[in-house]
């Protein structure tokens, strides 16, 4: 269950004291809206305080809204005053609620509404994309590895946006193991010429022999034909580990 996975991820992070403001608000929102969360019900009370605080801002509080109505600034001023984090939060909450509905739909009698389901799955994908995009700046490598692993569930279809984000982790993360985790997830994706090209481009950027070897193994085991020129360009970089050189040369010979 994808949604369960996200909730578990957020709760784990919360109890490690590592959740961001946005993520805590997401958790709070889930426990307010969802009535039956099964094994996660035991955590509900923990989030009550957050819910109470949030009620001050919810649209359902008509009384409060009425009282505040006369004091509202003009629309243009209001927009200026809105914190950007809140806009991001609102977008994330909407996506997350949609994502949660998938689980319910899949066991409801309306299962046949395939279009709706596809639409919601698309929203889950968007949520994953948001997580991948935002988590890249998290200070703890374990958070970034978890974010990368969330993309695994999209491996049965080739999604270029997700692949691009994974390659971004592979090329830019300062932790080698996060890079290796993204290679690990990329192995699960269907192999296309596009993916192979991205891997070859990435190979030119890697300085760690272990990352170079993992990419070369991936290319070697792929049935897609890759560019010999790119591999030669990689070999011309110099200062490579002898075994890395040997593996790249063997791939060139086999093409």
């Amino acid at each position: 269950m994808e949604n369960k996975h996200i909730l578990k991820y957020l709760l784990d992070k919360y109890y490690q004291g590592k959740t961001s403001f946005t993520e805590e608000a997401l958790l709070s929102e889930i426990f307010t809206i969802e009535s039956n969360l099964g094994e996660y019900e035991k955590y509900r009370s923990e989030f009550l305080y957050a819910n109470l605080l949030k009620q001050k801002h919810t649209k359902r509080d008509f009384t409060l809204q009425k009282e505040q109505k006369n004091n509202l600034p003009k629309r243009s001023l209001l927009i200026k005053k809105v914190d950007r984090r809140w806009l991001q939060l609102a977008a994330s909450v909407l996506l997350f609620i949609s994502a949660f509905s998938i689980g319910r739909l899949s066991i409801s009698p309306e299962e046949t509404k395939k279009d709706e389901l596809t639409e919601l799955k698309e929203e889950v994908k968007t949520l994953r994309t948001i997580i991948l995009t935002t988590m890249i700046n998290q200070p703890l490598a374990s958070d970034r590895i978890k974010a990368v692993q969330l993309a695994k569930e999209f491996s049965n279809i080739y999604d270029d946006q997700i692949v691009q984000l994974l390659v971004k982790y592979l090329n830019e993360d300062n932790n080698i193991n996060v890079r290796l985790a993204s290679i690990d997830v990329l192995t699960e994706f269907r192999r296309t010429a596009e993916l192979e090209n991205r891997l070859l481009e990435s190979l030119l950027l890697q300085t760690s022999p272990i990352a170079q070897m993992e990419i070369l193994q991936l290319i070697k085991n792929s049935k897609v034909i890759v560019s010999k020129e790119k591999l030669r360009e990689f070999l011309n970089q110099g200062e490579l580990d002898p075994y890395v050189v040997n593996t790249a040369e063997n791939i060139i010979k086999s093409l």
Binding site: D12, Q16, A141, S142, I145, K146, N175, N177, P209, I210
Partner: peptide, 24 residues
Amino acid sequence: IANTNHGNVLARIDKFTDTRTYFI
């Protein structure tokens, strides 16, 4: 989360739990 190119790694994990990440 531990990585080295040419060194050895010795890791003593006292508590191994489901919520953590282990990558060496």
